[in-house]
Design a protein around this nucleic acid. Sequence first.
DNA 1: CAGCGGCCTTGATCTGGGTCAAGCTGTGTT
DNA 2: AACACAGCTTGACCCAGATCAAGGCCGCTG
Lengths: 245, 245
Amino acid sequence: MIELRSMPTACGERRRDQACSQCGARALSICNSLDGADLQRLDALAERASFAAGEALIREGDEARNVFNITSGSVRVFKLLADGRRQITGFLFAGDFVGLATGDTYVFSAEAIEPVTACRFRKAEYRNMIRECPSLETALLERATHELAAAQNQMLLLGRKTATERIASFLLDLPAHDLARPMPAGHVHLPMSRSEIADYLGLTIETVSRVLSRLKTQGLLKLASLNEVVVMQPRKLRALAEGDI
Amino acid sequence: MIELRSMPTACGERRRDQACSQCGARALSICNSLDGADLQRLDALAERASFAAGEALIREGDEARNVFNITSGSVRVFKLLADGRRQITGFLFAGDFVGLATGDTYVFSAEAIEPVTACRFRKAEYRNMIRECPSLETALLERATHELAAAQNQMLLLGRKTATERIASFLLDLPAHDLARPMPAGHVHLPMSRSEIADYLGLTIETVSRVLSRLKTQGLLKLASLNEVVVMQPRKLRALAEGDI
DNA sequence: CAGCGGCCTTGATCTGGGTCAAGCTGTGTT
DNA sequence: AACACAGCTTGACCCAGATCAAGGCCGCTG
């Protein structure tokens, strides 16, 4: 048992009062939506877990026993085809929930990209929790709806955008998800590898690398390091992302 | 005010006790999850609406005033890029909800493919309803989670599957959504045009047409009419869809 | 029942991004 | 400091599916 309330980030605290660019919702963190008594009850049910880089929180096909709330680090959520082709359907950061699938088995996998800490809830207990704390359900519905809006944007990206538009959209959207990590304006931290970016955007690593190089040559970006991009011309990048060209 | 209870399909009745192939959930229709008293309350709030083919239920950017429950017909949900490129993010049938976005404005459009009837709920009233009827929220969360699982499958399809795999997946998954329309085993009804299939699968109409023709030549399908496909070899089609080749 | 128009199919050609193949870079190790 | 290795970049070439173009089919209308 961990005293979540004594640790500001333990239940996935995120910056408050920032409207989501994809669905317009505010106060998306579960923490922000619940009152003290509810958080206390969550507290009693939470078990802390940590994962090394590459370790799995959730494996597709396993019995769905747990729900996690990420408290630090970053996670890749993905599905595989039989021959190994991988689609990363999302990256998760502090404050995100994972494992809310309705069925008896997980329908996706989730692995730590960098060292991760999380609160684990047994799914059985989690159901009791919902019964006692209806506002949790409201908060989860809001988050699910938000993720659905994000998924629609991603489908638009995967189905209809060019490689350049995909990379531009990605660089502009990423900071909105990773709110726990404070970055100077214009700086984007990439905890994931090129191969993970490629599998998220439906491209190959070579194309990701080429497009980043071209955007750099064109002066839209600087590559401060492998894992840090500085957006030099956000207007132009936004125009590229929307296909306005 | 419409007496929903007196019309079996009015609140989006769907076949019961059929587990979803994408997320394992059962009883996905809202109707199936609610008891008589709750349905009666929903009843009092519902307003019947009908839409001609091509008419919009929801326009991206408009103020989000309504939530709809489709009671008959089929609907395309989509997003557009500035230059007109379209991604259809889903097709909706009897029993599906649309318009549950959290924000103040809709972030996608929804249009009737064929004549549609639906129950309209004012969003303000809908919020009261949730307060009075907590099991509605549970049902909606279950549906949202289900749609999220479907969205992840679609991202895998759009990001990593070949044209043939996309078409095969589409033909196998479609009947599971359109439960209200009873079809003989193996028969798939396509209420949407080739152009809508293309915009759903991230392809062009020419590619959709060519792949269907090839599958027909190979004896996997018959094209009974423009809008009806008969799957002759479901095993082989499933193998194609999963990329097992 | 002829003519029209919207959709669908099929063929020919083109191209964005994939594939294959070197190198490069940065980091950790001895 | 030299090395090794994993991940990244860059170049050359290729191909699945897009684009461009020409008919075909079918339901509707006069």
